[in-house]
Design a protein around this nucleic acid. Structure first.
Lengths: 148, 148
DNA sequence: GGCATTTGGTACGATATCGAACTTTATTGT
DNA sequence: ACAATAAAGTTCGATATCGTACCAAATGCC
């Protein structure tokens, strides 16, 4: 293994950080007032993956500390976009359910953002994205496993 | 263009966000007390790219609002890791210079983090990273151009 | 040259993020 | 069964992030 390769890994995480920052800005410009990517991400996840998950599972999915997830969920609940019920299988725990209003907000956000995504297609083709996503997903798994 | 492709773009930015979050956590665990990725990123950039840049150029490089950069630079200056001087070419502006202490902190951080990077090499080979980075860089440029 | 506009940077306030400590309920070990 | 430990979530305090409004210097325009 060559030391010369290491800077490449730094460059990788540097690009990821910048892209995250940039996409956050772009996406939030399309989200309704006060809704952040963290909120949208959770709503989307609840529909794409599974309704009724626990806060901890959500925190792990997004790799954020559980206290950050508590805060994000509180924001969503205050806007009545989710409901939190006690977990019938574990009294310490909660289950997060998306509401009708939550679905509506999410669907509308998807539509609004899709316009920009479609504009991107001409410049960065779907097949490139299709090749990129699994690579990033695998990288994520490796990093996650190495985390502790 | 097919609508079926759009979810792929959402997945892409979702992965990027999660990876950013995850790498932030991993990196900050190796940085000295109180030093964040935002700080390290600037120090590293000043050495890798160029010393003496203006705050605005740095903000653009990292795609953060200029007020965020002001705050990050203030933190670095308070720790004497950078120096800010007036820009001789423009009295409104400043130039950011890294100090000896700044170089030391950056070099040590690089060394400390490199150990983890090397551990990654076995699981995610350098040639894959080498293919990934230019793709991400191009994506960044496209997104940046579309930003306004 | 002088006024309008733009540009670089900061001050301030609102909110997001997150680590440490805490509460409550589950689980484990004996 | 019960004490010890672990796990889920929240509270709290510190600080990062960022949008708005602002100041000062530069640039454009006539």
């Amino acid at each position: 293994m060559r030391d010369a390769d290491i800077p490449l890994y730094f460059a990788l995480f540097n690009e990821i950080g910048i892209l995250s920052q940039l996409s956050r800005t772009v996406l939030e410009a399309r989200l309704p007032e006060g809704l952040l990517v963290s909120h949208f991400g959770v709503l989307n996840h609840l529909i794409r993956v599974q309704d009724g998950q626990t806060p901890l599972r959500l925190a792990r999915a997004f790799q954020v500390p559980k206290t950050s997830m508590t805060h994000t969920l509180a924001g969503l609940e205050k806007r009545a976009l989710i409901e939190m019920r006690v977990n019938p299988e574990d009294a310490r725990s909660k289950c997060v359910w998306i509401t009708e209003a939550g679905r509506d907000v999410r669907d509308r956000a998807i539509r609004d953002i899709s316009a920009d995504m479609e504009a991107m297609v001409g410049e960065f083709a779907p097949d490139r994205v299709a090749r990129l996503v699994p690579e990033l997903a695998e990288l994520r798994k490796i990093l996650d496993a190495a985390r502790d």
